[in-house]
Design a protein around this nucleic acid. Structure first.
Length: 593
RNA sequence: GGGGCCGUAGCUCAAUUGGUUAGAGCACUGGACUGUCGAUCCAGAGGUUGCGGGUUCGAGCCCCGUCGGCCUCGCCA
């Protein structure tokens, strides 16, 4: 090592020691005779003093130093002059009196500085990620990420899990998300797919008797990006044999207790709260509700059925619902303009036809543009159903079940954030369980698997599997943290005939199933144990534990919303020769390289 | 594919209803200064207002297109 110490470790106890430090020039303050250099590495910052005692050559080198130059400093640890301590720094009681100043490498003037207070635009940060990653907040996040992954690995190792790697080059399956494809050179016109998850492999491992499997697995999905979605992301993937849903949940409960304790010092009590999917949709309109605050959905469909007001009555007559949420005591904060914005929000983002609203006046009456259309009994009913008090604001949607869920969930999340209805440091962990097995695809009017087609139905729902698939509930569980889906898993089907029933229901013939998943069906036929597992979104968990609001800040080299890496400029075009070897022709040649 | 926000000096931002030579802080360059830690002081350099077109006597500002970043619906576990 060129250095004897890091820039974060020297203290008053080290005074008089001869040391060598290496790092980047974080800041320089040149007073002519005396010069101060703040030397930075990932461990901290240490002040270096260069003055005539350091020697003319060293002064000359120091004078020319600028931010982000890389230097080596030899010197003696000294207590700072009386009253010159900097209590903002852990090293603020000492300084290095330089006896040698060596420039290890000059830096160009960077487009931005790691220590600058205003964050540059994200495109600039991504293009110069090597600078951005020097920022202490990025370093803290990546260090937290490493700690979380270490804690996860330790936890599963302690519980006798075996870490097994699964292929990156796999086979495309038409289920689920769009695949990233990799052309095969050897096999003309054929493609590998990058894994969306190691789902099938881990099930095979269970059949093979590796009854506790774990992997930190990179996954790929070629779908549009979001603040919490990247095209490649990392899962803590695990699978267990001879278990039921409670066993998996308990295992993850234990992990969350450790993570919350070790990373945040937050004590969690287990079992973590659970809620069924149906209850979550009814009370919060979401399968991953943010439970840090209330503002639960109130259903007034029965009241709406009694009115002659067409908007309400019509929605119910058409099989829809009239539901709403209530803002407590803060109606005066909602101008007409703000309510109009919320109305546009529900229309544009969730396809609602409109947003009905009521303000509770001081006399207890409900004021609304539509009050005159509603019978007094109905207004009274709404008021008491919401337990409305003067100053409250009620927001209601009259629409299909789905639109009321999405719209009210959207409103609830938005208002929860805007009105600061929760402490941003608060963390809420819970489970949503008993998801439906199937979802009706509107376009083709066919059943599609809500999770994936290997999900086992609840044993008591086996009857409904064929009779009324919409009522069939799965042995599925999602981990929800602060309104984010942090992970999800299921107990899998382990017998061939149930698996075939599900394939049938999904409109998959035996031939199709054999063609796509033949190896899995084979495996299930050779002594498959009951098994199940879960995958946790590591990027999202890091985001939540770091209290960040986007996943890119938790990933060293993330992609932009258009799935580009601005630093490497990937994806890029390739040589014609490469395409030729792969037997690929590009339909429309790119306009420019 | 749809909706929205943004793009002005290296960086962060400002610029009256569309009106003279587009400004500030930081950074940068040169100089001064032996105790600063957001050092200070003096001087200087730095701009095709993302790009292309249009409207106008006149466009950073208005309109159309396009490129890029972000948020979001669809999509996606």
């Amino acid at each position: 090592m060129l250095r004897s110490h890091t820039c974060g470790e020297l203290r008053i106890a080290n005074v008089d020691q001869q040391v060598t430090l290496c790092g980047w020039v974080d800041k320089y303050r040149d007073h002519g005779g005396t010069m101060f250099l703040d030397l930075r590495d990932r461990y901290g910052r240490t002040q270096v003093v260069v003055n005539p005692d350091s020697g003319t050559d060293n002064v000359e080198v120091a004078k020319k130093l600028r931010g982000e130059d890389v230097v080596l400093i030899e010197g003696v640890v000294s207590a700072r002059l009386m009253g010159k301590d900097n209590m903002k720094l852990p090293t603020g009681e000492i300084e290095i009196r330089a006896t040698r100043v060596q420039l290890l490498n000059r830096s160009l003037t960077p487009p931005f500085f790691p220590n600058q207070e205003e964050l540059p635009g994200e495109d600039l940060r991504l293009k110069h990620r090597f600078i951005d990653l020097r920022r202490s907040s990025m370093q803290e996040t990546l260090i937290l990420r490493a700690k979380i992954i270490k804690a996860m690995r330790d936890y599963f190792a302690d519980n006798d899990f075996i870490d097994v790697e699964t292929p990156i080059l796999g086979r495309s399956t038409p289920e689920g998300a769009r695949d990233y494809l990799v052309p095969s050179r050897v096999h003309w016109g054929q493609f590998f797919a990058l894994p969306q998850s190691p789902q099938l492999y881990k099930q095979i491992l269970m059949v093979a008797g590796y009854d506790r499997y774990v992997q930190v697995a990179r996954c790929f999905r070629d779908e549009d990006l979001r603040a919490d979605r990247q095209p490649e992301f990392t899962q803590l993937d695990m699978e267990m044999s001879f278990v039921d849903a409670n066993d998996i949940i308990a295992m993850i409960d234990g992990l969350m207790v450790q993570l919350a304790d070790k990373m945040l010092g937050i004590p969690l009590t287990t079992p973590l709260p659970r809620m069924t999917y149906d209850e979550a949709m009814r009370r919060f309109g979401s399968d991953c509700p943010d439970l840090r605050f209330g503002m639960e959905i109130v259903d007034c469909s029965d009241l709406a059925a009694q009115t002659s007001f067409r908007v309400f009555r019509g929605a119910v007559d058409e099989g829809g619902h009239v539901r709403g949420i209530k803002v407590d005591r803060r109606a005066e904060e909602f101008s007409r303009k703000r309510i109009d914005e919320l109305t546009e929000f529900t229309k544009n983002d969730f396809g609602a036809k409109g947003l009905a609203w009521f303000r509770v006046e001081q006399d207890g009456s409900l004021w609304s543009p539509i009050s005159k259309n509603l019978e007094p009994a109905v207004l009274d009913g709404i008021k008491s159903r919401f337990q409305a008090e003067p100053g409250d604001l009620i927001l209601m949607l009259a629409d299909t079940w789905e639109v009321t869920c999405k719209g009210l969930n959207g409103l609830r999340r938005r208002l929860g954030a805007e009105l600061q209805l929760y402490d941003p440091k608060q963390m809420h962990f819970s489970w949503v369980v008993e998801f439906p097995m199937f979802d009706k695809d509107e376009e083709s009017n066919r059943w599609v698997a809500m999770h994936h087609p290997f999900t086992a139905p609840r044993s008591q729902d086996l009857e409904s599997l064929k009779k009324s698939p919409g009522d069939c509930r799965a042995q599925a569980y999602d981990l929800v943290i602060n309104g984010y889906e942090a992970g999800g898993g299921t107990i899998r089907i382990h017998d061939h005939s149930t698996q075939q029933d599900v394939f049938d229901l999904l409109g998959m013939t035996a031939e199709m199933a054999r063609d796509r998943f033949g190896f899995l069906l084979d495996a299930l036929s050779y002594g498959a144990p009951p098994h199940g597992g879960i995958a946790l979104g590591i990027d999202r968990i890091v985001m939540l534990f770091a209290r960040l609001d986007n996943i890119r800040d938790c990933i060293a080299f993330p992609k932009t919303q258009r799935a580009m890496d601005l630093m490497t400029e990937a994806p890029g075009s390739v040589e014609h020769k490469q395409l030729h070897e792969l037997h690929i022709q590009v339909e429309t040649p790119p306009a420019k390289s």
